[in-house]
Design a protein around this nucleic acid. Structure first.
Length: 907
RNA sequence: AGACCCGUAGCUCAGUUGGUUAGAGCGCUACGUUGACAUCGUAGAGGUCAGCGGUUCGAGUCCGCUCGGGUCUACCA
């Protein structure tokens, strides 16, 4: 059969994917005896389209999954999507507004808006699914999950209820990060800080001078805080003052001593506003201070500030109050200063800290049974990584993880939006509260409403449900319909959970280590008693050529993965993201990078054509279909060498993959394939005696087949296609199901490996001579070789050397060919080689020799110095010393030979 | 402010527990189409490993400091 001139990914890839999927190769078997290898795909948001972050995630996870599947693991890669509460709701609301509906929440109502969101999600899920397929992802679509699937909802509520019973979930007034624009709380992690210039006001405040950038909050102060050691204020601590604010309320403040106060900053005295500052709230708890809310959810001042200021926006009030203070002579100074303001990472609007009743997860309560103790969630999270149960790569991220845990506060899990898992709590009046899967009483909504029950309007933080992802996806959907089963039984009776949890690797970007990875550890250890995964592999960010994170706001530098797939194929995109990939290392994805990948794929294709022709030529009609097995033993040194190289490559590649060094693994295969297989072996098999040896067909077929298998997890499409073309595999013998190569026992051949290395050096040396002597590239040369080692191997490669250096003749001699004056000579520990120079350019040869001599002498000086150093000889590793000795010897030989040569030339 | 990462060839990056002459791809230069491949081949140029100091027989590699770049966290009334 003849291969096409080029591989056409656009036509080939979808067809290949279809064959994989229809063959059932992606589907994992929970009943199998094989050891499982499991990856839960980080669920893309059900809103958008595939970006480079998804692409690198898919490339790496598919690589691991294919490789482990080929190794014989029961590989499960479970795909899915996330409902992405805030992102999705604000996207749909935005779309509706653009279509002319100014306030969709009001116009559609809760159920109407949810319906609109559901329709939008269904649509974009299809898009995401198509795009995941286009990447070549070998994930198990039969197990696809969505965070809002019924059995996942069921689990979310079950976990909430259990945590509530265990006292790990509580409701309390807390300062939350309120976004007045989105009318919702946002978590600490959803806040960005933005530097801006603000005014810093210093006010007369009772007997003190107090600095603030937010005078309007002073209307709600309940204390003044100073540092306990601050001599200036020592006498004031404990006293209470009445402070009448102009046109505002008279506030009562107590002076408290708190070590959180920096005596160096401002005046060293600060007004404490417990209702509108996290740090002040904590102080208020320590000193038991009252809390006055002066800013409302709408971002306007409340009634508490009196009729003059009430109803103003925060900014208006700041101006107005400052003006009144100034008029009353209470404003000491106003200066500009740089301030970091918290803004919501989604709405980009300022965050307003407010007190609100919210649901929290208590991370400090020792209520979790873990390894025979009762620990807090925080302690369990720490132990899971510190004990080595979970390994984080790159390792240094473990330190970041611990640092984060140490600073972790209770996790606010309620959100004032509609899209998401609604908090499963019902209230009746102020007193009664009910937590459960169904409404209280008869279990239906209307009935409960008639009895006066009202469900909490809030929904759960998206990360609450995604924190369960590694195992909520493994719950049997039919079991989940049985509401009499508790969480323990749901887990125990789900075959997928038994077989596939804990998962093997969690692969994701380091930017969501805290958002997601840490919370999976928290939730999973609590709910299942198991860790969610054994290894966390954090990939780097994909950067544009300027080293910035790619973003849609800069389309000129961004690479659109879908465009690359369309134009060049998924293999090119994948390889570009995998070559050079290392844990946690950011990757610049550029056009140049993709050129390199494209060329490698092209080389793979072209080599296949030659392999195909050669196999036909040697075997003719005897060429059998199927996959060439490893030949037991072969005779020719070059064939032995090839088998030895393949053997070593298999070992290197496998160990690199086991170490998660994906880029390194790809590089190993590339170097061996291009440098050893293509540039040397494929040239060697063009000449006799290899060209017609039966054993060459065995080695060639086996070697190429091995390269295809090693490359397959990186570039699955083109390798699958070539596998079919060369080895005529049926659907049940596709490469995706082939065995991962193993290092064959017999293929060691150390002598031939060294001998052929000498052949390669000989070829390179002679090629160098050609260039240095300015020999016409077309000229045929006469080469004389005197082997000093590996005699048989060098002689066996006579024809090969002749072809590779374009020699008219290659003659093996017994005497030193360097004694002939009319020749250029190369020396090596294994050989001396001379090229007859018809009309020799002796000056060039002399120059070359002198340079060689100088280099060798310089090097010898260094080596001898090292050997003369007694400390080195006695203390250093004996192997290192021996290596230096050997090296010095070679140097001396080179020097001697060059000197002799120069003498001959001088005659 | 604190923590962490990075600084190696023109560009993008490797460099495994310290050990001979620091590597690869792209780019560049010269030459070359001999039936897989010009999306190719051969050869070559190009690096005081950011700087300073230390440990060591020996440092790109370990330690300290300085400079430069980045990320995260906390934020200061």
């Amino acid at each position: 059969m003849a291969l096409d001139k080029y591989f056409e990914p656009r036509e080939a890839e979808p067809e290949i994917y279809r064959r994989w999927e229809e063959s059932g190769a992606f589907v994992a078997d929970a009943d199998s005896e094989r050891e499982p290898f499991v990856i839960s795909m980080p669920p893309p948001n059900a809103t958008g389209t595939l970006h480079t972050g998804h692409a690198v995630m898919l490339a790496i996870e598919d690589l691991m999954t294919r490789w482990r599947r080929m190794q014989g693991y029961e590989a499960l890669w479970l795909p899915g999507t996330d409902h992405a509460a805030i992102a999705t709701e604000s996207r749909v609301i935005g779309d509706l507004q653009k279509q002319g509906m100014p306030d969709p929440r009001h116009e559609l109502g809760r159920e109407g808006l949810l319906q609109a969101i559901r329709e939008f999600v269904a649509d974009s899920q299809d898009t995401i699914r198509r795009q995941i397929r286009a990447m070549g992802s070998s994930c198990d679509w039969s197990r696809e999950r969505y965070t809002m699937d019924p059995q996942l909802n069921r689990v979310v509520i079950a976990v909430f209820a259990r945590m509530f019973r265990d006292g790990l979930i509580y409701r309390g007034p807390r300062i939350v990060n309120w976004d007045p624009a989105l009318q919702t709380t946002v978590s600490d992690d959803e806040i960005d800080s933005q530097e801006r210039t603000a005014k810093f006001y210093t006010l007369r405040y009772g007997p003190f001078l107090v600095g603030t950038s937010r005078p309007e909050t002073k209307l709600g102060d309940t204390a003044i805080a100073v540092h306990p050691d601050d001599e200036r204020y020592k006498d004031y601590v404990g006293k209470t003052y009445e402070v009448p604010w102009p046109k505002g309320p008279t506030i009562t403040v107590r002076v408290v001593a708190d070590s959180k106060v920096d005596p160096e900053f401002g005046t060293g005295a600060l007004g404490v506003t417990p209702a509108h500052s996290h740090i002040d709230f904590e102080m208020a708890e320590r000193h038991d201070l009252p809390l006055i809310q002066v800013i409302g959810e709408d971002g306007r001042m409340t009634e508490a500030v009196g009729p003059h200021y009430a109803g103003m926006t925060v900014e208006e009030c700041r101006e107005a109050f400052a003006a009144e203070l100034d008029a009353a002579g209470l404003l000491e100074s106003v200066e500009d200063y740089q301030q970091n303001t918290s803004i919501c990472y989604r709405s980009k609007q300022p965050i307003e800290p407010l007190p609100k009743p919210q649901w929290f997860i208590d991370v400090n309560k020792p209520a979790v049974p873990w390894k025979g103790q009762r620990l807090s969630l925080k302690q369990v999270m720490r132990d899971a990584v510190a004990s080595g149960d979970i390994r984080i790569l790159p390792e240094h991220q473990e330190r970041t993880y611990f640092h984060w845990i140490d600073n972790l506060r209770d996790w606010c899990i309620s959100r004032q939006i509609w899209w998401g898992h609604r908090i499963p709590v019902w209230y009746r009046g102020e007193e009664e509260m009910y937590v459960g899967h169904r409404p209280p009483g008869a279990g239906n909504v209307d009935e409960a409403a008639r009895e006066g029950w009202e469900q909490d309007p809030d929904t759960l933080d998206t990360w609450f449900s995604s924190a369960l992802w590694t195992w909520s996806t493994l719950i049997d959907p039919e079991l989940a319909e049985d509401e009499t089963l508790d969480l323990r039984h749901l887990l125990a009776d789900s075959p997928d959970f038994a077989k596939f949890h804990p998962t093997s690797v969690m692969e994701t970007g380091y930017d969501i280590l805290f958002f997601w990875v840490a919370r999976m550890i928290l939730m999973t250890t609590y709910a299942t008693g198991e860790v969610p995964f054994r290894t966390v592999f954090l990939h780097g960010l994909i950067l544009d050529r300027d080293g910035h994170k790619m973003s849609k706001s800069k389309p000129e530098t961004a690479v659109d993965p879908l465009e690359v797939i369309e134009e060049q194929g998924a293999d090119v995109l994948r390889l570009s993201m995998l070559l050079g990939n290392a844990p946690g290392v950011d990757l610049k994805l550029t056009k140049e990078r993709m050129v390199g990948s494209k060329r490698l794929i092209n080389k793979l294709w072209n080599a296949a054509k030659l392999v195909d022709l050669t196999l036909d030529r040697i075997l003719g009609d005897a060429r059998a279909e199927g996959h060439p097995e490893a030949p037991a033993d072969v005779e020719h040194p070059v064939n032995r060498w090839m088998l030895a190289r393949v053997r070593e490559l298999v070992e290197r590649t496998t160990s690199r993959l086991e170490a998660f060094s994906f880029g390194d693994a790809a590089e190993q295969i590339r170097q061996s394939f291009w440098g050893e297989f293509c540039d040397f072996y494929l040239e060697a098999v063009k000449v006799e005696p290899l060209a017609s040896a039966r054993e060459t067909a065995d080695v060639l077929g086996y070697a190429y087949r091995t390269y295809l298998a090693l490359f397959h997890p990186f570039v699955p499409f083109v390798t699958e296609r070539l596998w079919a073309e060369l080895f005529a595999a049926g659907d049940d013998e596709m490469l995706i199901r082939a065995r991962w190569p193993e290092a064959a026992d017999g293929h060691r051949y150390p002598d031939e490996a060294e001998g052929v290395a000498a052949v390669e050096r000989l070829v390179q040396a002679v090629r160098g001579l050609r260039v240095e002597q300015n020999l016409d590239a077309g000229a045929k040369i006469e080469l004389e070789v005197r082997p000093l080692a590996h005699d048989a191997t060098l002689r066996s490669a006579e024809e090969i050397v002749g072809r590779l250096v374009r020699a008219e003749s290659v003659t093996f001699v017994d005497s030193d060919p360097s004694e002939r004056p009319g020749a250029a000579v190369a020396v090596d520990p294994a050989f001396q080689a001379a090229v007859r120079l018809g009309s020799a350019d002796r000056d060039a040869e002399r120059q070359r020799l002198e340079k060689q001599l100088a280099d060798a002498e310089k090097r010898l000086v260094g080596l001898e110095k090292q050997l003369a150093n007694e400390n080195f000889v006695t203390k250093a590793n004996p192997n290192a010393v021996e290596a230096v000795r050997k090296n010095a010897e070679d140097c001396r030989a080179t020097i001697e030979s060059a000197k002799e040569r120069l003498a001959v030339l001088g005659e």
